[in-house]
Write a protein that binds this DNA or RNA. Structure first.
Length: 371
DNA sequence: AAATCGGGGGC
DNA sequence: GCCCCAGATTT
């Protein structure tokens, strides 16, 4: 690929463009390793616009690694609620605790130690260490892979076989060792703003003269589309119990099931992201109410009074990776809520303040509208 | 190497 | 509706 003077021109072109055109993002106003780290975790598979409000709120509550390490997990998940990929938050806090215990509260500078932390893989280690500590490590993420694939006219699935490894080698050779952090951000910024998946803006791209895909007219064909798993439709029924004071009942974050049906598509703990949730079961669509009633009678009320009037609410749609879920919520008014250890009883409007997934937020909203 | 984990903005 | 995103972990 590029070497010598051509590489120098290439690097200069991109860095000049980046220093001129980069977006003003909250995490670019600091090199505090903790903030860089937090931003990189939140940005995994998540768009910038979605992250910004979460980033600000999270730092207000947890300004330092120490405060993050000492917080209850539920509080961390509460601030992550709605952002998705919740194991990121669980790993983040576990890593924070390790950093406090083993690294004196400072994000480790050694790549091996960084990679050993939960939630830190090759990309995130390179990103944090280059941006915060100017380590000479090249990042390879979806943006960079697309930029490199177009530059070199690389056909086929970028994540297949050894292709990702080849792309990493390419990224390594292109890295500007004088400014590794800026360089990495510049490559990603180009992919995020100009060298986009569809309709790349080649006319204003600083690298257009270096781009093989551009020369061959392949910018729309590269990179190849990812093959996705076929979508599976799932039906759930959820019970929104409300007492005379407008209070409702939620179940605590369920643990992963060990063996039985771990591979089943309709595994409730997975579908509610192991967060607080309304009593929920998989159902056959046509029998949602009957099956939910039976479940409520045996598992929630344990033979007690189940509430007479059940109101079917507007079905809620939700997606969890390859699963397309329809939740059939039922509003059940009861004189009193059953007391069950571990459950939470609170006003319906306050459900959104808990550590819940978007699925539960949608169900709560549907119920609020009906009241 | 393949499967899995959320959610939303843009088209 | 579909696509894909500043990927990591588990098996």
């Amino acid at each position: 690929m590029l070497t010598g003077p051509a590489l120098a021109r290439f690097q200069k072109s991109l860095l000049a463009w980046f220093r001129e055109s980069q977006r003003d993002l909250p995490w670019r106003r600091t090199r505090d390793p903790y903030r860089v780290w937090l931003s990189e975790i939140m940005l995994q598979q998540t768009r910038v616009a979605a992250v910004i409000p979460y980033y600000e709120r999270f730092l207000e509550r947890f300004p330092t690694v120490k405060e993050l390490a000492e917080a209850p997990e539920d509080e961390v998940l509460r601030l992550w609620s709605g952002l998705g990929y919740y194991s990121r938050a669980r790993n983040l806090q576990n890593a924070a605790r390790q950093i406090v215990e083993r690294h004196g509260g400072e994000f480790p500078r050694a790549p091996g130690q960084a990679l050993a932390l939960p939630g830190i893989g090759a990309y995130t280690a390179a990103a944090i260490l280059s941006i915060a500590y100017q380590a000479k490590m090249a990042v390879l993420d979806g943006n960079v892979a697309r930029v490199l694939a177009r530059l070199g006219a690389v056909r086929g699935d970028l994540r297949a076989n050894g292709r990702w490894l080849e792309l990493q080698k390419t990224a390594d050779t292109l890295l500007d060792e004088e400014a590794p952090g800026d360089w990495n951000e510049a490559m990603m910024e180009l992919g995020a703003t100009l060298c986009t998946p569809r309709s790349p803006q080649c006319l204003i791209c600083p690298l257009t003269g270096f781009c093989e895909a551009r020369k061959k007219g392949l910018t729309e064909e590269i990179p190849a589309k990812r093959v996705k798993r076929e979508r599976v439709e799932i039906a759930l029924a959820a019970l929104v119990l409300v007492d005379a004071r407008g209070k409702t009942l939620l179940l605590p974050p369920p643990q992963k099931r060990e063996q039985a049906g771990a591979g089943e598509a309709a595994d409730v703990p997975t579908l509610v992201s192991r967060m607080w949730h309304f009593p929920t079961i998989p159902v056959r669509r046509e029998a949602a109410k009957v099956e939910l009633r039976k479940f409520a009678q045996t598992s929630i009320f344990r033979g007690g009074k189940c509430g007479s009037e059940w109101q079917a609410l507007k079905p809620v749609r939700h997606a969890v990776t390859f699963r397309a879920i329809t939740i059939y919520p039922f509003l059940a008014r009861a004189a009193g809520l059953p007391r069950i250890a571990g459950t939470k009883i609170l006003p319906l409007e306050e459900v959104s303040e808990l550590a819940i997934s978007s699925l539960t937020r949608k169900v709560a909203r549907a119920a609020e509208k009906a009241i």
